[in-house]
Simulated scan of single mutants.
Amino acid sequence: MSRHVQRRGVSAGGADKMGDPFSRRTLLSPGRAGEVADACQQRGVGVAVFVNPLTDHQRAVLTDMFGCLVLSGEDL
């Protein structure tokens, strides 16, 4: 099991991005999405669960990127 958290406004220059919307495509920054995808593939993860609600499009994109089923808390 692994846990990945994206905290906005914490990194250098991150405070300037606090007003930016979440990615409409993945809900994650590109770097974080790649990090989670690598972790899922290396560990053979079967399901990735997001706390935040996901759109059908986000779920499809993330499922393709991660190589496993992607759910949100609303799905549980």
Rank of each mutant, 00 (worst) to 15 (best):
M1V: 08
M1Q: 08
S2F: 06
S2N: 12
H4N: 07
V5F: 01
R7N: 13
R7H: 03
R8K: 14
R8L: 12
R8T: 07
V10Q: 04
S11E: 10
S11K: 03
S11F: 00
G13S: 11
G13C: 04
G13N: 10
G13L: 01
G14D: 00
A15H: 07
A15L: 13
A15Y: 11
D16S: 11
D16T: 08
K17N: 07
M18E: 12
G19F: 09
D20R: 09
D20I: 05
D20A: 12
P21Y: 14
P21W: 04
P21V: 08
F22R: 13
S23E: 01
R25G: 05
L27K: 07
S29N: 05
S29I: 00
S29R: 02
S29M: 05
S29K: 03
P30A: 06
P30Q: 09
P30R: 05
P30S: 09
G31W: 13
R32T: 10
R32L: 11
R32G: 02
A33M: 05
G34N: 12
V36A: 07
V36C: 06
V36G: 02
D38S: 10
C40W: 01
C40F: 09
C40A: 13
Q41Y: 03
R43A: 15
R43I: 04
V45N: 01
V47C: 15
A48V: 08
V49H: 12
V49P: 13
V49M: 12
F50P: 01
F50E: 03
F50I: 04
N52H: 13
L54D: 08
L54T: 15
L54M: 11
T55W: 10
T55L: 11
T55E: 06
H57G: 06
H57D: 12
H57T: 15
H57V: 00
R59D: 11
R59S: 09
R59P: 00
A60M: 13
L62R: 08
L62A: 01
L62F: 09
T63F: 03
T63L: 08
T63P: 03
D64N: 15
M65K: 15
F66G: 08
F66Q: 08
G67F: 01
C68K: 02
L69I: 10
L69Y: 14
L69G: 04
V70Q: 00
L71F: 12
L71S: 09
L71E: 15
L71W: 13
S72N: 09
S72Y: 07
G73P: 03
G73H: 06
D75Y: 12
D75H: 14
